[in-house]
Amino acid sequence: MQNTKPHTIIGALKSAFPHTLPVMAGFMFLGTAYGVLMHSIGLGVGWTFLMSFLVFAGSMQYVAIALFAAPFNPINALAVTLMVNARHLFYGLSMLGKIKEAKKFKPYVIFTLCDEAFSILCATNPPAGVDSGWFMFFIAFLCRWYWILGSLCGAVLGPLITIDLKGLDFALTAMFVVTLLNQWSNKSNRASALIGIGCSLVCLLLFGPDSFMIPAMLLMLGVFALFSNKLTEGRMGP
């Protein structure tokens, strides 16, 4: 039971924590905004906690507010969820190899694979001597709880906030734009980023804003099927 000694756990927490600092700041902000929005449609702390604890998917939770304001239709809610969250399939595919390092925490890490946890997990490795399972667990655990605490904060403070919050939801867009800029700084990502944007724009024009996501993902897969060999030249390893 070498992996459950206290110093193993604390060592993993210490090395995981700094990687999650930007997420802490971002999630306290976006989570609070979410809690405030939930409060503004009359849903209180309990529902906000359930959403952030069980769903833990920022953009979907915002979309869910529209579903809560529509007539009861759980099958439609499921379909919308699958479409909005279909990008998780791409994250899963990107993590197939890496996830083995999570060891016994594999299910928990997959359960917590949001945009931000994904971008940390696929780009970082634990320092030498630190258990990779506990390291990945803490990155996932911290991300989830920043979000939960942030949204609870908003749910509680919601009644006190009287400033005009119109446009606050743009924070999500800003977050993805910045993530894209960070990926752009690595030259080998540029072609695939442009293919992602290009396929999305083409499908947006063809299928309209409500149903372009799935065609865009299929088109991307098609383009990658044709050119993946060339696009990953020299990056595949042995």
Binding site: L93, I195, G196, M217, M220, S228, M236
Partner: peptide, 21 residues
């Protein structure tokens, strides 16, 4: 092909997200 996708999808997926927003 899936191994190659692991290199290509992260940035393509974020591009999709920006357009989605």
């Amino acid at each position: 092909f899936v191994r190659r996708l692991q290199l290509l999808l992260p940035s393509a997926a974020i591009g999709l997200l920006v357009v989605y927003c």
